[in-house]
């Protein structure tokens, strides 16, 4: 077997495993864990479009998750519009909001953008937590919204977890495709250049801020879709769960630890960091509250000091080394 065929076989095997997983993972709670894992991978991939390629640090992406969840739910509960359309509507609103925030701040130093997105995210959380009704729409403030049960494809509700699994998997695949495609067309090159050397790119006639705003709009749109997905999966959500600093930071951390600005980074980051944080929270917080976050902080610092390009770099190197080793020893 040559190196290329082995590489291809392994990749096809991985894809097949991922797509057939619900056939052998029948325990719904395990499937739920997998769904949330891919949900994080999807969110981080969306974040990566602006946080990775455009070289800025958005720290308020949970705001767009919230916009997506609340928009589609309000449309469904109040007006009987299918969440599938509500999802798109939420995405459009999130993109518009993202552009409004991005236009003044993306021209400035990165710190302004990071802090502004963070303040916007917190502001939105405070607003939602203090609003019981918005016109005729019920937001229920901090208590959150319950989605009435009605299992059907039209209502984006399913009895078992497998359909959710495939939906988030397809969403992740599309997000990865968009990322891959963007890195190969002009906007990707412009963003990369603008992220690394804004002055040089500008001197060459690239309107860096404009492309950053476009990336921001796409990223916000995609993030809002994940909000609708979460609402339909849980059928109940409240501001603390989908809005606020913790979630925004977690998305950024997954991307940075995985490797920002790379295709595999967000997925690898979610695959490794999510289980670590989940299990350490479950097993350690009863022993010593706070210990799991100390570990989390330590991981962040150590990865940033020793692998500033993220863990995707050593993992990719290991994969290549493994391919070489296997094929050489055979041939």
């Amino acid at each position: 077997m040559t190196r290329d065929t082995l590489d291809r076989t392994l990749k096809i095997l991985a894809v097949l495993t991922v797509f057939t997983l619900p056939l052998w993972v029948t325990n719904p709670s395990y499937l739920q864990i997998l769904i949330l894992l891919f949900w994080y991978a999807y969110l981080t991939t969306s974040w990566n479009l602006v946080g990775g390629w455009a070289g800025v640090l958005p720290l308020g992406h949970s705001a767009y998750i919230g916009i997506g969840a609340y928009t589609s739910t309000i449309l469904a509960v109040n007006y009987g519009i299918s969440p599938w359309f509500g999802m798109i509507a939420g995405g459009v609103i999130a993109a518009i909001v993202g552009v409004i925030i991005g236009v003044p701040t993306l021209k400035l130093r990165g710190a302004y953008f990071a802090l502004s997105t963070m303040a916007f995210g917190e502001g939105l959380r405070v607003f939602v937590e203090n609003t019981d009704r918005l016109g005729s729409c019920v937001l229920n403030g901090p208590r959150g919204i319950c989605i009435p049960l009605s299992n059907s494809f039209w209502n984006f509700q399913f009895m078992d977890k497998a359909p959710y699994y495939y939906i988030i998997l397809i969403m992740l695949a599309i997000a990865l495709f968009i990322t891959w495609h963007m890195s190969r067309i002009r906007i990707g090159y412009y963003l990369n250049a603008g992220g690394e050397e804004p002055e040089a790119a500008q001197a060459l006639g690239v309107n860096v801020a404009k492309y950053k705003v476009i990336a921001m709009a796409i990223s916000c749109f995609m993030t809002a879709l994940a909000g609708t997905f979460y609402a339909q999966l849980a059928l109940y959500f409240y501001p603390k769960a989908i809005l606020g600093l913790d979630l925004s930071f977690e998305i950024a951390f997954i991307a940075l630890i995985g490797g920002r600005g790379t295709l595999a980074g967000p997925v690898l980051g979610a695959l490794i960091l999510r289980p670590v944080s989940e299990f350490s929270r479950i097993y350690l917080s009863s022993v010593l509250p706070g210990l799991h976050l100390v570990i989390y902080g330590l991981i962040l610092i150590l990865v940033m000091i020793f692998q500033p390009r993220g863990i995707q770099e050593p993992l990719t190197r290991f994969y290549k080394w493994f391919l070489d080793k296997v094929t050489v020893s055979r041939g």
């Binding site: 990165g110 951390f253 509250p289 706070g290 210990l291 991981i299 610092i301 940033m304």
Partner: peptide
């Protein structure tokens, strides 16, 4: 030092966030 050629080192922000998590939670412990 590792990022000395970068104008605004994002990695440093993340490191300070790690310090934030550690300080707050060690205090909690």
């Amino acid at each position: 030092k590792a990022q000395s050629d970068v104008r605004e080192p994002t990695e440093v922000i993340i490191v300070t966030t790690g310090v934030w998590y550690i300080l707050d939670n060690v205090t909690l412990m």
